[in-house]
Design a protein around this nucleic acid. Sequence first.
DNA 1: CCTACCGATCGGTAGG
DNA 2: CCTACCGATCGGTAGG
Lengths: 236, 236
Amino acid sequence: MTAHALPFKPVLGPLTDLLPKRARGRPRKTEDERDDGNRRHQLLTAAARLFREKGFDATSTRDIAAAVGMHSGSPFYHFKSKDALLLAVMEEGMRSALARQAEALQGAEAGSRAAAGAVPAASASLLQLRRLIRAHFDTLLGPGNDFVPVMLYEHRSLNVRQRAALAQLQVAYESAWTPVLEALQASGHLCAPVKLSRLLILGALNWSVQWFDEKKGASLDELTDAAMALFLKESR
Amino acid sequence: MTAHALPFKPVLGPLTDLLPKRARGRPRKTEDERDDGNRRHQLLTAAARLFREKGFDATSTRDIAAAVGMHSGSPFYHFKSKDALLLAVMEEGMRSALARQAEALQGAEAGSRAAAGAVPAASASLLQLRRLIRAHFDTLLGPGNDFVPVMLYEHRSLNVRQRAALAQLQVAYESAWTPVLEALQASGHLCAPVKLSRLLILGALNWSVQWFDEKKGASLDELTDAAMALFLKESR
DNA sequence: CCTACCGATCGGTAGG
DNA sequence: CCTACCGATCGGTAGG
């Protein structure tokens, strides 16, 4: 709640004139062109944090505006609607999740090559799955990573068109898991059907958003170890 | 949206007087004492369905009232507040979940005794876990079982006092899994730490609310089979 | 359980 | 991006 939402006009005009000009007021525009992008991104970050903490419906656009020092109508200069802001948060989340996932798989490839042929195919798949899981935990639980949790838990607030826009990114993200799980099933490390395995595994990871507490308990590496131990068999 | 929410008074009074009196109006009170309980339970069921479909914040108390043929203020005759109605939905969900869980464990005990000593302890634990998982899927995905999904996904809308009221029931529900998982770890069927295993397993199951479609795809039995195959090793 | 209503809040906009 | 505002909706209540 900002003072500007009060039903009466504050009578501090003359008083504020005694303060240094613009000390805490609207930021002066240096480097005009980049400013808009910065403010837009500040809105995105604040929205992600608030949507995660309180939920989409329980967060008002006034809350978001106040979090970045704007007035109540100003977010609509940057985003057409509250819905559009939510979608932008989710798209940003999927973009960074896909980037982190790609990096993880490249790392796994490099790790296998470094062991120079001495690594059997099954072991390479194990490393790939480990890195996929670790990257996923990072995306969900890493510091400041509020975007994907918002996507997971506020999906219902999107309309059909918006869901379609996200679906492509989500399919791409989930598709990366399938060949890895297929290889692990072929080598006997995974016994359940691949499709259901992927759904159950991703569910187990996604639910960690509900209970993980970074201040106490396990680290993300320990979480990854536990997940690997839970889902995979010793090779036969 | 009911006609009563319009900003003008509908002019249909004389017309409705031509219809049979009370044909679709407020239900006449037969068996007065039990009536209140019935209406209250109708509100609970409708609220659970709407909270699950649209979310707590996106469901108005007017929506709930309309779903059971009441007018906008009437739900507050049965529940002190919208929050209290949400808590009642969750408590009802936990009560039936605990009952179903207890029944499942009793069935597992009986199943082991029927095999008359020929069943080793590890096999009994496997049967218990299978029945815990199957009962959990029933609680989440069975027809009309909207109460626990609401609890899982609308927890944030409760205040501290209400969460404390639920916590006891939730601890009781989760506690039932621990001795079963401990036994399976002792027999080598489970390799990950028990506490993290329980969190990951329940997460995998809880997430099924997001993707399970009863009209296509797997049955609850097939889901249970897949979960068992994913989480458990062959005994050694 | 209905009638009639209230205060608060919300998403969004016109004009600058 | 701010100012000033609007229409709609919401949870809840007094009185019957």
